[in-house]
Design a binder for these strands. Structure first.
Lengths: 229, 229
DNA sequence: TGCATATCCTACCGATGAGTAAGATATCAA
DNA sequence: TTGATATCTTACTCATCGGTAGGATATGCA
């Protein structure tokens, strides 16, 4: 039933014979599952669907994972690990805050255009049990805080204009999250062009050096109130 | 089982007696359903849950809606109507494109901080049947196009700097969509402050008048490539 | 008052999906 | 070669959920 790209087929091979390779097979399950979860959502992808895709039967999956949730949590873990590593590298750099933010934008885009990065953003952690949800949301919150710290650092060193770092970081991260929904790796749009445009549009708004001239925000606010009673 | 805010209780009253009021009751179902869908997702909210919340039983719901999907489609319709009306008003205005974009940001934030507006963004249209999905996605796409046209108009009249309108509109809309996830009306953050910050950050990036000085995008791109092999 | 009908309930059906029991079969180490 | 064990399957259980059948009851109109 589910239409899958040819890229998934290779994982079948691992299960084609019964040679012992638990780590490899576990990984194959994860790669197949994350693709299917992204395409059809976690809730609408049954364990049977995943098993069929790998040319095995459902109970075989339970040889590698205790339950469905463990697959999802593992996917989240792999995805957040990627983001954490990127932030480690950026924080270790000696650069103005604005440059770090620019690096973050580019790096974050690169990660969330991959399967596991995109999973962190697109998959609904509300499907998790209370325990799993707490774990995953904790990691997400930690990432948010580190991004906010990046912006606050830029405000301290003067490369970023004074702003509400909490709001700015949400805007920053949120705009990139949007990409995870519409961007298609196989599509016609060039990723480096998108990245460049994102970096330019977002860092310009943050940059210091243009005190108030750009746009009088009060006008926009007043305009908003008279629209649609 | 589901914890609900007191704001839902009033809708129970309508069902408390059996006075004939189909329109009012239908609306009460929609208001209750959208709240629950937003809190627990469409998939994890059963018809029984909705009925219990209204102090009736499941079959009574089928007196007002043919099936569960009809409720969701109706919610999408109400939400997209709000957005359409706002865009109508903005397009009718005689303003520079950048000002229209600013108005859109403020108006869009206002709408998506309400239940039905937020539903358009947060609820997963993948839960719909092929027919419903086509309908809803068509309306969403139409909105995207109108936002893009706003930006293109600003480029034509010179108020917005030359950029890829498709990417810019995605960034714009995406950043606001992020709000629908983290913003809580009852929370501590002031909505008008958030709106002002969003308008300022986003319109500054778009505005014309600062040719290339703000930030050299090429640096950020190069920096991105060496992060995390 | 009494009838037609809208409203709502109890009790059910059928489908789906997570997870398990119990056994068959292949692999690998000795 | 042979046993121990990892791997995988067939055949189930149990719970949930969308939706319906058919009947009970209140409402509003004649």
């Amino acid at each position: 039933m589910p239409r899958q790209s040819a890229a998934l087929k290779p994982h079948r091979r691992l299960f084609a014979d019964r040679r012992r390779n638990p780590d490899g097979k576990r990984e194959a399950v994860l790669h197949t599952a994350v693709r299917m979860f992204l395409e059809r959502s976690y809730g609408r992808t049954s364990m049977n669907d995943v098993a069929l895709q790998l040319n095995i039967t459902k109970p075989a999956l339970y040889h590698y994972f205790r339950n469905k949730e463990e697959i999802l949590v593992e996917i989240y873990r792999l995805g957040t690990d990627l983001i954490d590593e990127m932030l480690d590298a950026i924080e270790a750099d000696e650069k103005p805050g604005l440059d770090k933010v620019a690096d973050f934008i580019a790096g974050y885009i690169r990660i969330i255009t991959g399967d596991f990065g995109r999973a962190v953003i697109r998959l609904d952690d509300g499907e998790l049990s209370a325990a799993g949800r707490k774990l995953v949301r904790g990691r997400k919150r930690e990432i948010d805080h580190r991004v906010r710290a990046l912006i606050e650092g830029g405000m301290k060193d003067g490369s970023i204009a004074s702003c509400n770092a909490k709001i700015a970081s949400f805007l920053l991260v949120g705009s990139i999250h949007g990409m995870a929904s519409w961007y298609e790796p196989a599509g016609p749009m060039d990723l480096s062009a998108i990245t460049a445009e994102y970096v330019r549009l977002l860092t310009t708004g943050l940059a210091n050096g243009l005190p108030e001239l750009a746009y009088p925000g009060s006008v926009a606010l007043k305009a908003g109130t008279h629209l649609h009673g």
